[in-house]
C-alpha cells in the first residue's frame, strides 16, 4: 500500500492552524475523519471548551480519540483510508515530559525516558501513515523567544525538524494564511 500523505501545520496561538488542518482533512475525502486530541482539561472552562469542540466535530461526522500520551494506543483504532488530524504536538510533549510526576519520577528528569518516547512516536507516525490516507499534524510556534524551558523547547525543535523533513507538505500558519514551506 502507498503510504498516506503526511502534512505538518505549525503556527502561533490563534493563527487559524486547527481550522486549516481540519480543512485539509476534509479535502482528503476519506471514509472517516479521525481527530486525535492530546489536550487535557485542567479546569472547568477547558473541559467545557473541549466538550463543545467534540460536539461540533461529532455533528460534522468526526470520530474523536482522546490520547494525551502514548500515541501508539490510538493505532489499533485507525482504519484503512481514514483521514487523521492530530492536535497537537506541544500538548503531547508536555504530557509525556510530565509523565511520572505523581510517582515522583518525572520523565523529563529520567535519562533515556524521553528518548524512548520519541522513538515510539516516530514509529507510530510512520505506522499511522501506512494505515491512513492522510495524517495532518498540528503544532505551535514556541521557539522564537528566549528559552524559558530549554529541554521542552529542544525536544519541540527536534520533533518539528523531523516532521518537516518527513512530511509531504509543511505549512506555517500566519493569521489564517497558510504559507507552504514544503
Amino acid at each position: 500500500m502507498v503510504p498516506g500523505q503526511l502534512i505538518f501545520v505549525s503556527g502561533g496561538v490563534r493563527s487559524g492552524k486547527s481550522t486549516y488542518a481540519e480543512s485539509l482533512v476534509r479535502q482528503a475525502n476519506a471514509k472517516r475523519n479521525v481527530y486525535i486530541a492530546s489536550g487535557v482539561a485542567r479546569d472547568q472552562e477547558m473541559a467545557e471548551r473541549i466538550g463543545r469542540h467534540q460536539q461540533d466535530r461529532a455533528q460534522d461526522g468526526w470520530w474523536t480519540i482522546e490520547q494525551p500520551r502514548q500515541l501508539s494506543e490510538a493505532l489499533p483504532l485507525i482504519h484503512e483510508n481514514d483521514a487523521i488530524l492530530w492536535d497537537c504536538v506541544t500538548t503531547w510533549l508536555a504530557n509525556e515530559l510530565y509523565d511520572g510526576v505523581e510517582e515522583g519520577n518525572l520523565c523529563a528528569d529520567t535519562p533515556g525516558c524521553m528518548e524512548q518516547k520519541w522513538q515510539e512516536l516516530k514509529n507510530t507516525i510512520d505506522a499511522l501513515r501506512e494505515q491512513a490516507l492522510t495524517i495532518v499534524i498540528v503544532s505551535n510556534e514556541l521557539l522564537d523567544e528566549p528559552l524559558v524551558a530549554p529541554a521542552y523547547q529542544q525536544w519541540l525543535g527536534t520533533i518539528h525538524q523531523w516532521l518537516a523533513s518527513r512530511a509531504d507538505q509543511a505549512f506555517e500558519m500566519d493569521n489564517g494564511l497558510a504559507i507552504r514551506r514544503k
Binding site: E141, L143, D144, L147, Q153, L156, G157, T158, H160, Q161
Partner: peptide
Amino acid sequence: MHIIFGGAFNGK
C-alpha cells in the same frame, strides 16, 4: 555577509 536567521532549535 550572509545571515542565517530563525527560531531556536530550527536547524540553523
